[in-house]
């Protein structure tokens, strides 16, 4: 949670991430990291909250991303090494590499990966 809050703080205070096609949205994003579940609340230009939740709370998410812990770790290590995701570690590539995709929802309404 401390990590999520630190990233949230960077995102909320960096104007460079809020313009040029990025930033504003209004959604509840879920993350499944192994057997742990998290929610990120986005409101406008702010990630207003990050919290650890139970699996049942994924129902409240507009969509959630799920990968094994080792894959999340590999992505973060790639970002740490290069300053941004490269090659096989962008969310787009991670999604395309998976037959079931990276994003889904409990309501079966994430019918295509965008």
């Amino acid at each position: 949670m401390a990590w999520f809050d630190a990233v949230r703080d960077i995102y909320n205070h960096d104007d460079a991430m809020h313009g040029a096609g990025s930033g504003s949205c209004d959604c509840v994003v879920g993350l499944q990291v192994g057997r742990e579940f998290f929610q990120l609340i986005f409101e406008g230009f702010e990630c207003s909250e990050a919290r650890k939740v139970t699996k049942a709370k994924l129902d409240e998410c507009d969509f959630y991303l799920h990968m094994p812990s080792k894959d999340w770790r590999a992505m973060l290590q790639n970002i740490q090494e290069h300053g941004h995701a490269t090659d096989n570690y962008t969310l787009n590539t991670l999604d395309l590499d998976r037959a079931e995709g990276l994003s889904t929802s409990t309501h079966n309404d994430q019918v295509f990966s965008i």
């Binding site: 313009g19 040029a20 990025s22 930033g23 504003s24 209004d26």
Partner: peptide
Amino acid sequence: EEAIQRRWA
């Protein structure tokens, strides 16, 4: 609203 707020040049 999203289109307006996420515009890019």
